[in-house]
């Protein structure tokens, strides 16, 4: 494997966003790119990352390899990179280590690190293609704000999408709270757009602790996409450049 990333910051942000949810995971490398799929310890949430080969330049992976990496170790090394550094990941065919090289584009500084790999027996889950009842895209910062505001009142949030809009509501010991967003197009600031595509109304309840955790990815993309259907996990997607993505799935709360 040899994969060169124009900005080390991208990988740094991705790992930073998921490291509190999953600890040890396999980075599955093949000629289409680098993928990661991992559940949190309690099997409530699933992280799915895809960094497509096109996100790297160049990208070369001659043989499929799984790099088992402890994310807190990876984060320690990624913190040694300057945000603007060029990052090259390298690994052999049957690797014991993954090699990370940081190059400054402005100076002649070159730093090199090896991280010891681990054997991780990780099961891959099959994520079915789903036609979601509601797909909401909104500013990532707005979603983060709503989750952070509501967690002050309650541990869970009901997300209800109707043709009127999308309502995030919660109730807790001190009282209730709700934030409603309607579809909104801002021609001058399209990054503030809220788009709600609805085939049928849907209402589901989720743990806010996990949503707040997902929102650590807000720095990766201006927009977040929420996809909901009755009785299936919520998809929270941050789209990255070159069709790469960071997706989180969250199992709904069940029964009453």
């Amino acid at each position: 494997l040899e994969a060169r990333l124009e900005q080390a910051n991208l990988l740094k942000k991705v790992v930073d966003a998921i490291k509190d949810l999953v600890q040890d995971c396999n980075f599955d490398c093949n000629d289409s790119g680098i993928a990661l799929q991992a559940m949190d310890n309690s099997h409530v949430a699933l992280v799915s990352m895809m960094l497509k080969a096109e996100s790297f330049s160049p990208f070369r992976c001659d043989r499929n390899i799984a790099l088992g990496i402890n994310l807190s170790s990876l984060m320690k090394v990624l913190r040694c990179a300057q945000n603007e550094d060029i990052l090259t990941l390298k690994a052999d065919d049957a690797p014991d280590v993954v090699n990370l090289v940081f190059e400054s584009s402005e100076s002649d500084r070159l730093s090199e690190y090896d991280i010891k790999l681990m054997d991780i027996d990780q099961e891959h889950l099959g994520i079915p293609e789903t036609e979601y009842s509601a797909t909401i895209s909104m500013p990532a910062a707005e979603f983060q704000r709503i989750c952070r505001d509501l967690i002050a009142l309650s541990e869970s949030v009901a997300i209800e999408a109707t043709k009127e809009g999308v309502k995030f509501s919660c109730s807790g010991d001190i009282g209730n709270g709700a934030v409603t967003l309607r579809s909104h197009t801002n021609v001058e600031k399209p990054e503030l757009n809220v788009d709600i595509a609805l085939s049928e109304p849907v209402a589901l309840t989720f743990s806010l602790k996990y949503l707040v955790n997902f929102c650590k990815a807000s720095g990766l993309s201006g927009t977040v996409k929420l996809c909901l259907s009755s009785e299936v996990p919520l998809l929270v997607e941050y789209t990255l450049a070159s069709n790469s993505y960071l997706r989180f799935y969250l199992a709904p709360k069940i029964g009453d």
């Binding site: 099997h43 699933l46 889950l125 869970s156 199992a251 029964g255």
Partner: peptide, 14 residues
């Protein structure tokens, strides 16, 4: 009281 769903009940093992 609502319980928490398990992601493995929705996405089967590959």
């Amino acid at each position: 009281k609502a319980g928490q769903g398990n992601i493995m009940n929705f996405f089967g093992k590959k």
